[in-house]
Nucleic acid binder design. Structure first.
Lengths: 178, 178
DNA sequence: AAGCGCATGTAGCAATCGCTACATTATGGG
DNA sequence: CCCATAATGTAGCGATTGCTACATGCGCTT
């Protein structure tokens, strides 16, 4: 078993149990190996986490690309927002969201690997947004950054039980179809 | 030493070292007691954390109220945004921000106490915003929720190294003074 | 076949974890 | 003063942590 074949299994465990509680022996069991072998492959738990975060960022990038392919371009910013929020509200997306907030926390504390992974994922989403802005949008670059900011704020409010507050804010800001 | 006199010291330790890494013995040392006494007062580490989060939420509420008193009302939404973002960019605010992302993560995973604390703090900020919307604002309630969403998104992007992206988004959205 | 290097198992170490049993001191009301 | 109750110290338990030493298997080349 190589590092590369291990990473998806490790990612699965982290998605359901979280990064903070991840210790070598449970991780190893989830991947069908031993803590001994995890350290053999990654050298250190810290490097394992770094590699894992990088792998997660790659997964996210691939998922974005997959969605990108199937895209018919929405006609308005409101339609684009609605589509993204609907996708992010999918329960299947929840484990990734929980992991995401741990990554943000690690980035805020500048733990090794966290900021790089978070920055990459946000960057990927930004590129996707820019490529999906409505045709004829007056400012696709600025608009994508604007929508990105609003989307992330909405996700955060939803995480802390203020999803309805965010929805009302989006309506008041003219960012949702009426 | 009572619970109430312990909580500020515990909060200090958590602000600099984080919630996830907080274990009883270091917490006790920071508060000038022993792990034994922390359990004597709080019963369980879980309840200690819950009480601590509630205390942090109270601190945040008090801080908001203090700022509320000194408020001359800004003339525009842009000025209000600028003022808030300036305050949040204060380096003295950084430890709280790092703690905040841990609280959001806990709320997303529904750990006991986290969601309640996060919801209370966001609610407090929302009330403050509503009370500080510019005079004559066409929709203070909706506008406050809109600004709240944008503010939280900006904070998150700043945490992951995309602060400049957020700033460009705010400009494109007409939410910063030009 | 011999030996070499990669891969893996077994066992354990020192540290830390939350928590508890037991003993002791301090304090305040009768 | 005496005693009950609250507060605190000491010591340790069993589990888990990241990591390592040592031995063994496996496959390949010479």
């Amino acid at each position: 078993m190589s590092k590369e074949s291990l990473l998806p299994l490790l990612t699965g465990h982290v998605l359901t149990h979280g990064l903070g509680q991840a210790s070598l022996r449970p991780l190893a069991q989830a991947a069908g190996t031993s803590d001994r072998m995890l350290l053999y492959h990654f050298g250190t738990k810290e490097r394992l986490i770094i590699d894992l975060l990088s792998h997660v960022a790659g997964l996210y990038s691939a998922a974005i690309d997959a969605v990108m392919a199937e895209g018919e371009r929405p006609a308005t910013r409101q339609a684009l927002m609605a589509r993204i929020l609907e996708q992010n509200a999918d329960p299947a997306f929840a484990p990734f969201m929980m992991l995401w907030w741990e990554i943000v926390g690690g980035a805020a504390r500048d733990l090794p690997g966290y900021r790089a992974a978070a920055e990459a994922m946000v960057g990927e989403l930004l590129v996707w947004l820019e490529g999906h802005m409505p045709a004829g949008d007056p400012d696709p670059a600025g608009g994508a950054r604007y929508l990105l900011t609003v989307i992330e704020g909405t996700m955060m409010l939803a995480a802390v039980g203020h999803g309805e507050t965010a929805r009302q804010g989006l309506l008041a800001g003219g960012l949702l179809p009426t």
